[in-house]
Design a protein around this nucleic acid. Sequence first.
DNA 1: TATGAATGAGTATTCATTCAT
DNA 2: AATGAATGAATACTCATTCAT
Lengths: 192, 192, 192, 192
Amino acid sequence: MPKLQKSKDKKEALLYATLNLVNSSGFQGASMSKVAKVANVSPATIYLYFENKQDLINQLYLKVKKEFSERAFHGIDVAEPVKRIFEQIWFNIASFKMEHPEEGSFLAQCDNTPMLDPEIREQGLLYLDPLLAIWKRGQEEGIIKPVSPYVLYAFTIYPMAFLLNEEVRPHCPLNKEKLSEAFKVAWDSIKV
Amino acid sequence: MPKLQKSKDKKEALLYATLNLVNSSGFQGASMSKVAKVANVSPATIYLYFENKQDLINQLYLKVKKEFSERAFHGIDVAEPVKRIFEQIWFNIASFKMEHPEEGSFLAQCDNTPMLDPEIREQGLLYLDPLLAIWKRGQEEGIIKPVSPYVLYAFTIYPMAFLLNEEVRPHCPLNKEKLSEAFKVAWDSIKV
Amino acid sequence: MPKLQKSKDKKEALLYATLNLVNSSGFQGASMSKVAKVANVSPATIYLYFENKQDLINQLYLKVKKEFSERAFHGIDVAEPVKRIFEQIWFNIASFKMEHPEEGSFLAQCDNTPMLDPEIREQGLLYLDPLLAIWKRGQEEGIIKPVSPYVLYAFTIYPMAFLLNEEVRPHCPLNKEKLSEAFKVAWDSIKV
Amino acid sequence: MPKLQKSKDKKEALLYATLNLVNSSGFQGASMSKVAKVANVSPATIYLYFENKQDLINQLYLKVKKEFSERAFHGIDVAEPVKRIFEQIWFNIASFKMEHPEEGSFLAQCDNTPMLDPEIREQGLLYLDPLLAIWKRGQEEGIIKPVSPYVLYAFTIYPMAFLLNEEVRPHCPLNKEKLSEAFKVAWDSIKV
DNA sequence: TATGAATGAGTATTCATTCAT
DNA sequence: AATGAATGAATACTCATTCAT
């Protein structure tokens, strides 16, 4: 199926082009014709793969969020204790943001923009469900504070968007040691 | 001084219109003509008060950030102990975000967008300097972890943008008690 | 090749519309939207064929100048004596200006406007190189005054822009006889 | 009458500002607000002295043309022979164009633009009437060719606009000797 | 006389999208 | 599946002009 392959390549290229353009110049900077040009494709071709610009952005968000989540839960062993699992997830996320700054920056930009459809944003959050399960277990074991998962997320995961942001990083470089410090801060916030 | 007043009113109206439009439809949605229409003014009039769109957004950001900061440090008594001061600031910020959701949402949207000039963003951060001083004092007194202020900010202040976000609030309502819980989470994260 | 043809037609129409609008209302009067309207085309379409307004004007200038030059040197036989050749060129130019008043008027308007890029103007002058060669030959043969070609041009060719100008023509009608008189004036000016 | 004086100054300043702006960026570049800014005056003030932009340009044209003519006929002694008089006028004009390149360039730009009202242009030409009288006398004396004054103008005066143009001058520098050569060319063209 | 503020209509240009091929 | 050409509506911004003071 070489044709299908080729198509996939094109869709990939379009998503990638959009990612870069949104990062460098915001949602408004990622015009369809620029996306097409960067992806080496005709503007009309975009509409073979995406309904419209909104759909393009939605799909891109879900794709990146999915990659992000897969990485977050990579190598997790549920047999391990809660703190250990959480630690691993936390560092996985940090690694993702450091190794894929483009994706990280894009997700951060999505965090508070009205450009994203609310349903899509919700859908993206679902990818993090396993983390909620871990937290719940931790709460049942009495080692994590009995507060809303939104609070847990806000004080442990969300801060990383700021800390690993490309504009902040130069001011606050994070080597292995500093990163461990940061994790301790995160853990202290929610541990009982 | 009716003349000066009239002008100030118009500038105010333009900034307010921009705030609302950016909130509802992003930076690209806040087109100059829409801003003009909402402010009940001719598009050309905008350029009497602002050099261009970028300047409009920059000025709006600085204005809101200033209001935000003034509120954050309102009623602070430096004679009090560090934890008490920090607590007050934290709740001040929470109050601001709850009472001025429009401003809060706008600032959140500014956090990770490339639409803002970096120098302006930096300038906005200066408003928070007093908080850094408090933290430093706390660190000297040995009651706050000796980590970068960026880390302290990321894990105590930044989370509020998420928690008090208009899309999240419905899922995670915060009454007085829940808010206190959240503060405890924040404080635990950075206290020694 | 119907596709290419269609495109050429549109580009042609745009250039023609610009020519007329510049003639009737100057460079500022030839606004992109008017050009589009006259050419029966969307404003956006102009940008498929021209980079921007400057490019549109540059291309128009070069095209008209080229047509002008081709006509000027049409049917020239270099075996003939210099005066005969020059006479033929001179009348060719006169014919062009009389039969194509639009083009003539446009070129005249280009002569002294800062709207034209200097490099483009220079490029346009190159089309007249063959005339310089004739003059040089005439000077070597000792039948044309040994002065700068700029002077020769100023006193023999440039005057036609005035004389055949649409506003002057009514005041000074030129039949065949009068035209011959004028040529004599031109020739007397530079002959030894 | 200090007030009237002051007014005159302002009008002068406005005309001067327009002259410079038209020279540097064409008629479209000389926007009313730019003119006002350069003249250090409010845009509204322009309308105290001129009906509208067209009137401003018309008045400027007539003023410059008048200065030009006054200079052209300066020091003429009608008792002298025709050739001598014409020679003096010709050199007067050349001097004007060399000493007042701004004015010269402006007049050249006016020559073939539709921006000028035809009646105004005609009015400007009237200033040259004395030259026509000289030519008529020369024709009656049998020393100037019996052709239309438009032809005489085209081949003797009009060429100077080209030759002394700021873009051409660098390519064809005119010292005293070269200028005399050029005058000879002009005179040869129309002398019997 | 002089102005700063104001504006509706206009400027060049770009947008997301469609369509014939 | 893929496209180049095409476009109406929108973009940020400027224009000549007016008016209350």
